[in-house]
């Protein structure tokens, strides 16, 4: 059974998570990807309504349209490749007190070290599964930097219910990505 996480998430709950564990998240997710990470890393400020403390960032550029009543409707919302945020992620975890990052493909040594230091985890959602994941997004509570960065790069505030992911980097230095890379590299060497 997946472990249920509700935002804001406590440090103790995050530190109890281990690589390979399935989780389901209920509460608030803030999307943030390339433009947001670069902006924040250069010292940019978050809008007052965006509070990342004990929260979770989702590396995602969703498809969102306005319905006939003028309300935002999330049409598709899977994760984007997280590796591009590696230069920034560790600092952002520290500065804003973030407890989790959802994305795909995993991240590198600097992010892993920051996860250990501050008590955070990397949560892997299934890449490309934009419909399954959008079903878990119950509403759009707000959008920030829409004009500046464009729709995919904006910060979207989503209300989510039982959003599924897997812990692939934990707060104890464990990384499934490092394990699988090393094992597959060894297998490949045998076959060259």
């Amino acid at each position: 059974m997946p472990t249920l996480l509700t935002t804001p998430v406590s440090e103790a709950q995050i530190r109890a998570l281990k690589v390979g564990e399935a989780v389901e998240i209920t509460g608030t997710l803030f999307t943030g990807r390339d433009a947001v990470h670069k902006y924040l890393a250069k010292g940019g400020a978050l809008p007052p309504a965006v509070n990342l403390r004990d929260g979770i960032i989702y590396h995602c550029g969703p498809v969102v349209i306005k319905d006939d009543a003028g309300r935002w409707k999330v049409v598709a919302a899977g994760p984007t490749t997280s590796a591009r945020e590696e230069p920034y992620q560790g600092d952002i975890l520290r500065r804003f007190g973030v407890r989790g990052v959802i994305g795909k493909g995993g991240m590198g040594a600097r992010t892993l070290a920051a996860c250990q230091e501050v008590g955070a985890v990397y949560l892997h959602a299934i890449g490309g599964a934009a419909q399954v994941l959008a079903e878990h997004i119950k509403s759009v509570r707000g959008v920030y930097f829409f004009e500046e960065f464009g729709s995919p790069e904006a910060i979207w505030e989503f209300e989510v219910e039982r959003f599924p992911a897997v812990v692939t980097m934990d707060a104890h230095g464990g990384s499934l990505h490092r394990e699988v890379f090393e094992a597959s590299q060894a297998e490949l060497l045998k076959r060259l």
Partner: peptide
């Protein structure tokens, strides 16, 4: 499940079109 849902809802399989 995602493949089935996308077809049924006539919405993008992946948000990165």
């Amino acid at each position: 499940k995602n493949i089935e849902l996308a077809k049924q809802k006539s919405q993008p399989i992946c948000q990165d079109t």
